[in-house]
């Protein structure tokens, strides 16, 4: 099912949560809504679900205007951040709930057959008689997914699905969700504030800031060509140096960088910590090493430019650390954005 949002607006009391968002999600696509807290991503997801109604604009499911359809008739599967499993029902009863309240009557045998099938799909065979309080967080999240899938939703919506789990479980569930999505081919929209999760899982990433879409694209597109300083910063560690642009050239100390389409005046130069080479001889920006942080696969070096701006870069584990060593920072893949 294709989903289309057409200039959707939502205001809570005096706070405008979503400012005219338009977005097309193709049938069968797995899309991440990525943004910091307060960026309006969860509000958008809840409006697609029908748990909130937009103040302006429209939401289409296929060709049908779904804006005013109630959540119970919208045919979406929703997975809540904290699972929202019914605590007084067993795992099996939770999964069967949607089928039991459905208008299409199913026989008890049909329901229990489908519950078993779904438990196999989420790899929780044999747990149907446990209560939610008796299983782990990762298991609960999978039960929540099975429950959402039980009603044959046209669209699957997940709100920070792995937010409450620890790192290893998150990574496993991420890969596993991708596999389930590929098997079922169901249009899926999920919300996250974790860039790694969005890039790992999604076909397409929608980056939001302050209720607006700031960039949409495949993980490759948004990583290789961040549309703004915000996206550059949000997607991962980035160094930021103040530079001066004149004639589409950005200058810091005596080093210049291409700055296409940037107006003359002060601007900002961004680059990733991995895109730096430290040199002892005279190329690049002059800097002094201040500190080093060791990581399993590299050393993170903290340096200061001669005018006191911090730079962080990654070096090989063999990098020799000497406090106050002078040298030059050579930058690959620099990006200049207006200040």
């Amino acid at each position: 099912m294709k989903i289309r949002l057409d200039t959707v607006v939502k205001t809570f009391d005096t706070f405008r949560a979503v400012h005219g968002v338009s977005l097309d999600i193709e049938s069968g696509e797995l899309v991440a809504l990525l943004g910091p807290s307060g960026s309006g991503k969860t509000t958008i997801l809840r409006m697609v679900a029908g748990l909130e109604f937009p103040d302006g604009g429209a939401i289409y499911f296929g060709d049908e205007n779904a804006t005013d359809i109630e959540v119970r008739h919208r045919g979406v599967g929703f997975v809540f951040q904290h699972y929202a499993l019914f605590p007084h029902m067993t795992v099996g009863e939770n999964i069967a709930f949607g089928m039991k309240v459905s208008k299409t009557k199913r026989s008890a045998a049909e329901i229990s057959g489908r519950v078993e099938h779904l438990l196999r799909l989420v790899q929780l065979e044999g747990l149907q008689d446990r209560f939610p309080a008796q299983i782990s967080g990762g298991q609960r999240q999978r039960v929540a997914l099975a429950r959402a899938l039980a009603v044959d939703p046209k669209v699957l919506l997940l709100d920070e699905p792995f937010g409450a789990l620890d790192a290893n479980v998150r990574r496993d569930l991420r890969r596993w969700l991708r596999k389930i999505h590929d098997e079922l081919g169901i249009t899926t929209l999920f919300v996250t504030h974790d860039q790694a999760e969005a890039l790992d899982l999604a076909d397409r990433v929608v980056i939001l800031d302050k209720g607006k879409i700031v960039q949409t694209g495949t993980p490759e597109e948004v990583c290789r060509a961040p549309a703004s300083a915000f996206v550059m910063n949000f997607l991962g560690d980035a160094n930021r140096l103040k530079v001066t642009v004149s004639g589409e050239k950005a200058q810091i100390q005596n080093v210049t960088f291409d700055a296409p389409d940037i107006a003359d005046g002060p601007a900002e130069l961004f680059f990733r910590p991995a895109d730096v080479t430290w040199r002892e001889d005279g190329h690049g920006i002059q800097a002094t090493i201040a500190r080093v942080i060791d990581r399993p696969d590299s050393r993170r070096v903290l340096a200061l430019t001669v005018d006191g701006q911090p730079i962080e870069f990654d070096a090989a584990p063999e990098f020799p650390f000497r406090a106050d060593a002078h040298g030059f920072v050579e930058i690959r893949r620099p990006r200049v954005y207006p200040a």
Binding site: H73, R74, V76, F78, F80, A84, L85, G98, V101, V151
Partner: peptide, 11 residues
């Protein structure tokens, strides 16, 4: 969220 979950499931 429990009531919302029940709503999304069609109750």
């Amino acid at each position: 969220a429990l009531e919302e979950a029940a709503q999304t499931l069609g109750a």
